[in-house]
Each structure stands twice: as structure tokens, then as C-alpha cells.
Design a protein around this nucleic acid. Sequence first.
DNA 1: TGAGGCATGTAACTCGTTACATGATTGT
DNA 2: ACAATCATGTAACGAGTTACATGCCTCA
Lengths: 205, 205
Amino acid sequence: MSLRHAVLGLLSESPASGYDLMKLFNASLANVWPATQSQVYGELGKLTSAGLAEVSAHGPRGRKEYAITDEGLAELRHWLAEVPPSGPHRDDSLLRVFFLGVLTPLEARTFLLGRAQETARLHATYRRIDEEAEWDDDMISVYGRLALEYGLRMTAAQEEWARWAAEQIDSVKAREAGNRARSRLRNGTGTRNGTRNGDDLTPTE
Amino acid sequence: MSLRHAVLGLLSESPASGYDLMKLFNASLANVWPATQSQVYGELGKLTSAGLAEVSAHGPRGRKEYAITDEGLAELRHWLAEVPPSGPHRDDSLLRVFFLGVLTPLEARTFLLGRAQETARLHATYRRIDEEAEWDDDMISVYGRLALEYGLRMTAAQEEWARWAAEQIDSVKAREAGNRARSRLRNGTGTRNGTRNGDDLTPTE
DNA sequence: TGAGGCATGTAACTCGTTACATGATTGT
DNA sequence: ACAATCATGTAACGAGTTACATGCCTCA
């Protein structure tokens, strides 16, 4: 349940209304922990009931400004320092890779090159942000920079992987063409063996 | 809604019961698209109603073996080749990085080194799998290998990043110590400026 | 005076998690 | 006979998404 901690984290920087928080989510956490308006308002309510945040001011248009409480800050620190983060989960693109065998090699190759392009696009956007931002020495700048660098490195590695993977398909296509030719000489039928193997990729968590 | 496609993908390799599918999920997709038993049984029901899968055989203990239909295979191909994959979403560890400022630099550094260790552990597990598997030229081996290589590259990059990030904190700590010293000479008080900046990291999707 | 932005909330739905419940078969 | 494994399902809950509903300010 990390939406809670995302909200607490933002509130730890400064008090904010639900509306403000939505802007912050869209501006700074969109790629890391997206949230919808109804989630944010709901969470603010729960946070208040739990004593982790409180209404610190009332404004125009029914605006309610929330501030983190001492208890909330303690919870945030506890989460950061003592709760083990959960590993990576659910990668749509990678899931597809497992089943690329149902496509033709050409289609599979196209898919992978599409991935390469998409990650390259993302990488470029991150680089632009990096160049345009003025990085200070304050905490937000330091840690924001760290997160951005993570994005830069991951997108770079993903693009490289996707290009490499596309090449692998080419070389397998070539090898298979060879096998088919040799196979015809021996059997008269094409390659079609039912050997099962590999496929697993699990560190038994 | 990719659970559907994960199930279709597994069924495309061979018919299976819900029980079999659970084993496959745990064995080969645990790190990519985990699923629970109740989800799998539920999805098999929906898939059957939708005509994308069908019960192909009945066994002992009420076993029902499901097979993918032509329509299901078409849907799988369509998803693979034509539906654009959604970008990366919700990274617990990275979310924490944004808020590391509420911890002491030492605690933050400890967190990052912990991440480095954890990704290194995962990397080692993947490498072991890679070495122990016998990779053939069949589709499952080829694409399984691709996915594994992805895991290897990502964990490697993550570990490098985490170590780099930990170092950054050290160098900022040093710089800050300097600033504090200089600051004392000028003001008499410690550093405490409210400048907001950076923090954003969003390619306006 | 009207458009655009500020501001909060609810309802209905899907997806995912945990726990419970039950029973049949197989091998020792 | 009894333990392990095969095998299927349901219920309750929490998290996330989409759409709707409403109204107040401010500035041009």
C-alpha cells in the first residue's frame, strides 16, 4: 500500500490540498507512482482518520490544506528505512517476449524494434529534462537527480537489449533456414520437434 | 487486461488445466506476470465464455483441460503485434528514492546499498538459471533466453545505479559539510533554505 | 458575463490478494 | 490407512480506473 506513502512523501515537503497533490503526482511521480484524483482524495481522508495527516488550513472554494503530522512523518521514515521494497512486478512488454513465438520471426523482430524506438524516445525526454533543470544542492534536487539518472540508465539498457534481441532473431532465422535445408536432405519433412525445455526464469521467491 | 493474454499465451504452447497453469505461472512467469489461483480459474471461465478457449478434455478429480481456440490464437496474435504495450508503472523502490531526503544521508546511503545488494542477488540467480538451462533452437528457448537476458541486463544496470547513487550521497555530504562551514562564517546559522526546484521527472505522456 | 481553472467528492466497475472450503486419487 | 498431491472453486477485501456530479472564484 504505497499510495499512502507517496502522499505522505509529498506532504512531507510541504502542506498541500488534494488538488495540489494531483498536480504533484502528474508533474513528478507520473512515471513512478501514478494516482488518480479519486484515489488521492480518498487517501487524504484515510490519512486524516489514521492521524498521519491533518487539515492545516481552509481556503476559498472549500479548499482544505493538509499537513503531515509527527506520526505521519514517523510512518514515512519507517517505511523508507525499515520496510523492504517489493521486487519488480508485471512488465507488459516483457510478458509479450515470452509469447513472441506465436508470431512470425519478422513480426517478432518488428515488435522488438518498436520497443527499441519507444525506449529511445523516453530516454530522449529524460535527457531533455535533465538538461533543462537547474540542479541545486538541496535534498529534492539531489534525490530527484538520482531518480532521473535511474530512468536514463534503464531506458538506455532497454533500448540496447531490444536491438540486441532483434539481431538474435535474425541469426536464429538464418540458422533455421540452414537446419531446414539439411533436414530436407535427411527426412523429407520440415523441422517440428516437440522438445520442451528452457522457458523457466524463476528464482523461487 | 494482460492476465488474459498471459493465460492465452501459455495455452498456445499446449493445452492445460487451471492447476497446470498455476504451475506454469509460478515456474516461468512469476517475475513477469504473477497470478493467483483464483485469478487463473476465474480467467479460464471468462475465456471459455468469450470463446477464446474451450474445455478440450476431462480427467480424474474433475480435471478440466483447456485448449486455446482459433479465435483465442487470433486475439493473442493481435495483442502481440498490434496493441501498443503500456510503459513501466509503479516502482516501489524508485518511489522511495524521491523521499530519501526525509532520512539522514547515512540512512539513505544504507537504503541504496541495500538495493544494490538485492539486485546483485537477483542477478546471480538469473545467471545461475542461464548456465544451468540447455538452450535449444526452438521458439521457447529462443524467446525465453531473450527474456532472461533482459533480466540480466536490468539487474546489472540497477546494481550499478544503486552503487553510483550511494556515492553521490557521499559527495553531497562532503559538499554540504563545506557549505555549513562557510555558512557559519557568514550567518551564524546552519543551512536551511526553502528553495524549491527540480523534483519533476515527467515526459507529459 | 462567461470561460477557465480551482476544488471536492461519489458510484460503479475491474483487477489482484488472501483465506477458506472441499473433495478425489495415488503411492507408500 | 494416511499423507501428499491433484484439482476446483467461492467470499471478502483492498487497490486502481473511469465517469459523473457539483459548485466557487477570478480575470478578461
